[in-house]
Design a protein around this nucleic acid. Sequence first.
DNA 1: GAAATAAAAGAGTAAAAACTCTTTTATTTT
DNA 2: AAAATAAAAGAGTTTTTACTCTTTTATTTC
Lengths: 143, 143
Amino acid sequence: MVSKTCEYAIRAMLFIAQKSKSDIKVGVKHIAKAIDSPEPFIAKILQELSRKGLLQSAKGPTGGFFLDNAGLKQNLADIVVAVDGDKLFTGCGLGLKSCSEKKPCPIHDEFVAVRRQIKTMMKSATLDDYNTSLELGEKYLKR
Amino acid sequence: MVSKTCEYAIRAMLFIAQKSKSDIKVGVKHIAKAIDSPEPFIAKILQELSRKGLLQSAKGPTGGFFLDNAGLKQNLADIVVAVDGDKLFTGCGLGLKSCSEKKPCPIHDEFVAVRRQIKTMMKSATLDDYNTSLELGEKYLKR
DNA sequence: GAAATAAAAGAGTAAAAACTCTTTTATTTT
DNA sequence: AAAATAAAAGAGTTTTTACTCTTTTATTTC
């Protein structure tokens, strides 16, 4: 559904969101451990997202990645688009380039519905909104 | 959502289903042209599916690939599982190995709903069911 | 200002997915 | 039986995705 890179990105962003609530910046090592991902790989992903402005970073001791208030208002769809592009939300279910309302593939209408549901779901909650259930230990980012 | 291999497989199977309605066997060359796919690649995919029993084949002149009556009753989910496995229907949205009702990822419940919708959609119609709209030229397999 | 910490940047490697080519085997038509 | 047709099989290549390593640069603490 989304790339592995994107899965890591979402999990990392959710973890950073938690820490940012208490104004804590987190280093790559800490993040990698928390979401169980290869350290240099998640570093690269987050640098890319930081360049794109989806999160902030600070170098040096006590530095690390963090989210400002605007960042905490982002939703999962924002991350998915930044990492994978919008093919999940716009592509044809059978890979046809010019599949459209006018020239639909056999499953066009059904896929439009599925995609809409996915989009709605990914836009319905901000990173901040996930914090509570994560803090309560009702939801997990690891294993 | 599904692999490119799987997209080709579905499109080829839908095309073969059409031809099989009039008891016509189709060669790889013909199929590749009809669905706009690399010829040796779709050949390989169909050989694999034929080995798994999802369609039939005959060698020699007038030979080619075709579907028997049971084959025409298959749905898209059958093809997806044969090609990609069942990860689309069972995997975690964030790639967690032990994501479950007991230890859910933050988007577990929403993803269960999305996956159910996809599964329902892919099981709701047989290959045969798509024939009419394709014959009428309302739906397309190419471009 | 020296040492330590942590991200930035970029090159490099490994594995998987997508795609190709060649040879063989079976079947049918003439 | 010979020629032609078409799938079977398997090895090989290319591209993309996933992941690693090394060096540099910025910041902070002591």
